[in-house]
């Protein structure tokens, strides 16, 4: 009986925790929740790690110990897409050049191609991320890395990239530019969220609601 009781007790605690978790997702108690889609709080923020170098095309590179570069896509693209459910990567051994569109990610039928942040040989790709693209949206800067590159012209490449304060300023500008892009390109403003016009703008998953032409424009204007 004791064993059974203890197990039931622990399972109950876990159940209560899951219940609270589920409820809080269902009924967000947010200060100024947008009228439309309820968003989890973390979707309203953008993360900018300090030690990551950002390519203007919204990919990042991080120096690893030894001499390799870890590469991935940034939080901005991932949020704009509303998640990732498809990842295509170059083969191990391929040579990629900085600025070449070599990474493809997709979500809900929309697809974007992104550029390599630096030049070099692909030494490894994150198979787990390919098989389980959710990892990329969960944490694009850690578990969600995409490939390892053995850099060929590191110093020159790095001068092209934004890091630390520069990266923060750059991302802020990008967010502003993105909002302008949305208000200019959206046929129906309601689609992209009315909140946008009164200052705040949800950006999560906005791309889902644009047509292919606008997605293409986005790719040209933001990801190159």
């Amino acid at each position: 009986m004791v064993a059974l009781f203890v197990i039931l007790f622990v399972v109950t605690l876990l159940g209560v925790d899951l219940l609270i978790q589920a409820r809080s997702k269902q009924y967000p108690i947010m200060a100024a929740a947008p009228a439309g889609k309820a968003l989890a709080p973390e979707r309203e923020t953008l993360r900018i790690p300090k030690s990551v170098f950002f390519h203007p095309g919204h990919t990042w590179a991080r120096l690893q110990d030894g001499d390799s570069l870890e590469v991935g896509i940034d939080d901005f693209v991932q949020k704009a897409l509303g998640g990732i459910d498809r990842v295509l990567l170059p083969n191990v051994g391929d040579f990629v050049r900085q600025g070449d569109a070599v990474i493809t990610v997709g979500h809900a039928g929309k697809q974007l191609s992104l550029v390599a942040p630096a030049s070099g040989y692909v030494r490894a790709v994150n198979r787990d991320a390919v098989e389980n693209p959710g990892m990329v949206s969960e944490n694009p800067y850690r578990d969600g890395w995409l490939m390892m590159i053995e850099p060929a012209e590191l110093a020159r490449n790095l001068s092209m990239l934004h890091v630390a304060e520069n990266a923060v300023t750059w991302i802020k500008d990008e967010v502003k530019r993105f909002r302008e892009f949305l208000s200019a390109s959206a046929a129906e403003p309601a689609l992209v969220g009315e909140a946008m016009f009164d200052g705040g703008a949800p950006m999560a998953g906005v791309l889902e609601q644009l047509d292919d032409q606008h997605v293409h424009d986005f790719e040209q204007q933001f990801l190159r």
Binding site: E44, R47, I48, K50, V168, G200, A201, P202, M203
Partner: peptide, 10 residues
């Protein structure tokens, strides 16, 4: 690592 978290609301 240290990171900056940018809020997207107002």
């Amino acid at each position: 690592e240290e990171e900056t978290v940018l809020r997207l609301d107002s």
